[in-house]
Design a binder for these strands. Structure first.
Lengths: 248, 248
DNA sequence: AAGTGGTCTAGACCACTCA
DNA sequence: GAGTGGTCTAGACCACTTG
């Protein structure tokens, strides 16, 4: 937990907002108030409130007190990158099964996204994922060659590849980029999800990279309509100061 | 235009990245290098690189140089909140038409999202939007009562309500929250978009608020599959210092 | 061991908001 | 006009990466 000063302050403020001490629309104490109350410098306080602003919890305008915009918590990075972590976070039971794992040359798009030479070997995976027993997502992932052996070593019903990579191989996803659109179910999608061909699917394509920026995987995940909603919050005043997440 | 120091530095770095001076994977100069080169303090340089990190362009780890993660530009806030601004930004011709504008009591969800009393009056708008002449999006928006008159005064083929509100009424959107999912086209959707009922649609529901946090509108926008993709980038090391966007 | 980013301080001035 | 957030400086120490 936060031996880091501004993380402590941010956590306390977040708890106060969640707890209703500062309801939506309320004004937060001024930076100097907070600095005095926490015996910290103003810079440290600014880093704390910047954290909350980045989460979309509070807004600010020059000259006026900061205001509370929302009360709910947001998805964390790992929840957007890991189906299993997201599902467990919202209290669903998740199960998964590898339907195939084959090494083959990368397609043009895979090579581009993984930053490897066209035709370089990747591990192509097809996976069906269930929430509370219901099939909700078909995942087609290309893993970069340097993590292929690790993924091949995993059990067929492994719940979370990214967890396994982190725990057993020290491969941790740090950066992600996501493309979200809709499309009709193809015949394979339809068969696996128990839908009619042409049914609406929500697609999330994403690439994950480790902390050196090296791509790990490029994935095409297709969700049954109605099973998942993505949420994003933004602001014209864009985001604030570097921090570390609670878990790490 | 940056008379603001860290914005200048950020713009120069961004230009250097876009221009290929620092390709993907390259290491940026150290903070002290940049501080010396720009005759700025290290804090100012950190604010500049924090801006780029927030955009997902660069990553960082303690002890190692910052690295370039991507080269493309990202959507700005206004592009996510305004269909017209997004479309013009990517070089498409946009046209719009109000199909109906009626005042009626808010539904339960509208009242909640707009933070008004259940049953309070809102302006309900149905609008069809085209890209290069093709119908691509059906928009159903509830405007809060305090902006209703302004929206009613707009021309039937008004391209951008948010632009009009900002220009003529001083109502500027500052915060946004977005929910993205997929669903099958209803009969009205299908008729307006020229699709079959049940065709896949990408839905973006969003609420916009002004700088005091007061909700302006709650909207349900449905795009024909294949016409639009949303993109999000994220990082386990969450973002840094507050900045202002280039345009304002 | 040297370099680098992460955290923190204690000041300063300015632009803006609000009563 | 007092209060507040936005910007900036010039230091400091620490944790971590890298050669």
């Amino acid at each position: 937990m936060g031996s880091i000063r501004y993380v402590e302050i941010a956590e306390a403020l977040r708890a106060a907002i969640m707890g209703g001490e500062y309801p939506v629309g309320a004004r937060l104490p001024s930076e100097s108030d907070l600095a005095a109350r926490w015996a910290a410098s103003r810079g440290t306080v600014r880093q704390a409130v910047a954290t909350l602003a980045a989460e979309g919890l509070i807004g600010s305008r020059q000259g006026a007190r900061r205001i509370v915009l929302r009360q709910e918590r947001k998805h964390s990075f790992s929840e957007l990158n890991s189906f299993a972590q997201w599902a467990e976070g919202v209290g669903h039971e998740v199960s998964s099964r590898f339907l195939s794992r084959v090494r083959r040359p990368a397609t043009v798009e895979e090579a581009e996204r993984l930053a490897v030479a066209p035709g370089a070997e990747v591990l192509a995976v097809l996976r069906l994922r269930r929430l509370d027993g219901e099939p909700v997502m078909v995942e087609r992932t290309a893993y970069a060659q340097w993590v292929a052996a690790a993924v091949e070593a995993m059990a067929e019903d492994c719940r979370s590849v990214m967890d396994g990579l982190a725990r057993d191989w020290g491969v941790v996803a740090q950066y992600g980029e996501h493309l979200i659109d809709a499309l009709p179910a193809g015949s394979e999608d339809a068969r696996l999800l128990g839908l009619r061909r042409g049914s609406p699917l929500l697609r999330q394509r994403h690439v994950s990279a480790n902390r050196t920026g090296r791509p790990i995987e490029w994935s095409d995940d297709r969700y049954r309509a109605g099973s998942v909603t993505f949420s994003v919050s933004n602001s014209a005043v864009t985001t604030p100061l570097a921090r570390r997440t609670g878990e790490g």
